[in-house]
Amino acid sequence: MIIIDILSWICLILGSILCIIGGLGLLRLPDFYSRLHGGGITDSLGAGLILIGLMFQSGLTMVTVKLAMILIVLFITSPTSTHALGKAALISGLKPVVTDEHID
């Protein structure tokens, strides 16, 4: 029982730290297209780890099924809305900043 508790705490803390890193990325990264990646961190692994940590806490109940459904729906919809944002920005003519200094 104590092992499951520790596992869920690790997941929750790691997920929160990843969320904060993603938020920092949203502030620090220079242009819009790079900021999409900052949002991507919090959407994929940050949200996933927090929800998995909560699943460890609840055990095999209806709550776990609902958390898993939230996770699946989040994993399908969040890339879709990220793609829609990127495409809308591309169509509207927002030019991405491209650095070629690392290409030989």
């Binding site: 297209y33 692994l45 890339p79 879709t80 793609h83």
Partner: peptide
Amino acid sequence: FANSITLTPGTVSLDLDGEDIVVHALTE
């Protein structure tokens, strides 16, 4: 495939162009 590209941080699929997918990558 396109959703997997977007779900992986560091790459975002921006546009579908025929058979090609236009991808914005954060790093080399």
